[in-house]
Design a protein around this nucleic acid. Structure first.
Length: 475
DNA sequence: TCTGGGGTCCTATTCCTA
DNA sequence: TCTGTAGGAATAGGACCC
């Protein structure tokens, strides 16, 4: 492991360019993670078909137990379909915070194994163990050790794939998982090791959809070429593949199909965007109402931005119409912003440019184009306050000093709210999220600042019904 | 069957500027 | 000053992942 002097970041590519034949990468994947945590916390659920996700008409399945999978239920399936397939299923609205806790425990275990751990989501991670084999044994031994520790310390189960690359490790962990179908649940192997000598045989037998990057659209296009397995793809001329799916994706897939995947395990990836979005229980046509729904998402996003010590140049909104067509509108500023009112001004203007006549099903806001927060004093060459655009008697705060004249109005909003935002953050850090915030966010139950995962799996209430509050529901 | 919320990455087009 | 061009940035959409 080599420390990169520039970024201070380490990665497994530093060994020898990443393509080494003796790399050993583990992919650790928790089994039915969210659902397993729910069963862990409520043993009465043991052995039942449990679905974590939105129970409302517009909800989807986030995770489910293997007992639910026996009915054909899987993640991302509309909840209505899941309920039809298994009317006796127990729906549980997920608890993001709780899963985050368990995820931290998983990462603590993995971090104690190797410094090269790359989290993919709450429930999976890559671990490069190339450099720790002399201490802990070969890949299979380390994989078994991880499974043992997850079982004994977390009382949960996981599957581990071992291979020379991320691609193979990931597919191997999938092969290690339990399988559920109409005939019942068959336990998985737990650990699957794919040695280099068996790599191509293992890969080529898989359907193309198994490859990371091949979803429904790409899968259909490949099927048009008669390509259904990874082996078919490896046999396809590169030009044909590139014409079918584009140069970048085509080249990438061609390499993967030959087992060529030098991507390193990179700990601590920096975020590139932060945002919130919400599907409404009923479509909304009213512009004022949409602005009202946008406000908490903007406030939460700006808040998250500042917590990460970032500011964003680009503000985007996303609108999904009743017919499911989705559009985005974005605006980039000269100066990065992080104050809620500045973001609100841009997002609000973008929303005003959108036609609402079809009815809006989903609204979201996203911030990107990150730069560091700039709280320094903006110097001006013009020291005469009159000519610098500052009226006589204007008080100049620590962020003041730059001329207001010619400045982007959004930048003016940003500058004037910076101190307030800092004060809000300080108060929230000390007294909690609901201690202070914009008056526009005060609702029936007081002030509530949104957090990631608050609206994870769709609106809770079914259209036409009152808001349901029980976390657990069955029909 | 009717589709969530958090993201990343790629591509095509348009706009701006040198 | 006008025009053509090329490259980069901005914008929008779409595919994909968990």
């Amino acid at each position: 492991v080599v420390e990169d002097a520039g970024s201070g970041r380490r990665s497994s590519a530093d060994h020898d360019g990443g393509a080494s034949a003796d790399r050993v990468i583990l992919h650790v994947d928790m089994d039915a993670f969210f659902a397993s945590v729910e069963v862990l916390d409520d043993p009465a659920l043991l052995g039942l078909p449990v679905i974590v996700g939105g129970a409302g008409a517009r909800g989807v399945v986030a995770a489910c137990t293997y007992e639910a999978r026996m009915f054909g239920i899987h993640s991302a399936m509309p909840s209505g379909v899941a309920r039809r397939l298994c009317p006796s299923a127990v729906f549980v609205h997920g608890r993001f915070e709780r899963y985050s806790e368990e995820s931290k425990r998983l990462h603590a275990i993995l971090d104690s194994i190797s410094p090269l751990v790359e989290g993919i989501s709450l429930d999976e991670a890559f671990v490069d163990v190339t450099g720790v084999r002399h201490l802990l044994g070969d890949g299979a031994t380390i994989a078994e050790r991880i499974r043992f520790r997850v079982a004994s310390e977390m009382r949960l189960s996981c599957s581990v794939g071992v291979g020379r690359s991320k691609l193979v490790a990931k597919l191997a962990s999938k092969a290690a998982k339990p399988v559920a179908d109409r005939n019942g649940v068959r336990p998985g192997r737990g650990v699957v090791v794919v040695p280099e000598s068996e790599e191509l045989e293992f890969l080529h037998a898989l359907p193309v959809q198994a490859l990371w990057g091949v979803g429904r659209a790409t899968g259909r296009r490949l099927e048009g070429l008669g390509v259904t397995t990874v082996g078919d793809m490896a046999a396809l001329p590169l030009g044909t593949l590139e014409r079918a799916v584009g140069a970048a994706v085509g080249g990438h897939l061609a390499r993967l199909s030959r087992g060529d995947d030098p991507r390193p395990v990179v700990p601590e990836r920096a975020a590139k965007s932060i945002g919130h979005e919400e599907t409404f229980a009923r479509d909304i046509w009213d512009r004022t109402e949409l602005h009202r729904r946008l406000a908490p998402m903007v406030e939460a996003s700006a808040n998250a931005l500042r917590r990460s010590d970032l500011a964003a140049r680009t503000v985007s909104i996303k609108v999904r119409y009743a017919d499911f067509t989705t559009i985005t509108r974005s605006h980039s500023l000269k100066v990065p912003i992080d104050a809620g009112p500045a973001v609100a001004a841009v997002a609000g203007a973008l929303l005003d440019s959108v036609d609402l006549s079809l009815g809006i099903r989903l609204l979201g806001v996203s911030l990107s184009g990150f730069g560091q927060r700039d709280r320094g004093v903006q110097l001006t060459f013009d020291l005469d306050p009159e000519r610098a655009g500052l009226g006589k008697g204007d008080s100049v705060g620590r962020e003041g000093g730059a001329p207001e004249q010619g400045r982007d109005p959004i930048e003016t909003v940003q500058r004037s709210w910076e101190s307030v935002s800092d004060a809000l953050d300080a108060i929230r850090a000390r007294y909690g999220d609901s201690s202070v915030g914009p008056a526009s966010l005060v609702g029936a139950e007081g002030l509530r600042i949104r957090r990631r995962g608050d609206a994870q799996w769709g609106p809770r209430a079914l259209p036409g019904r009152s808001e349901g509050d029980d976390r657990r529901t069955t029909e």
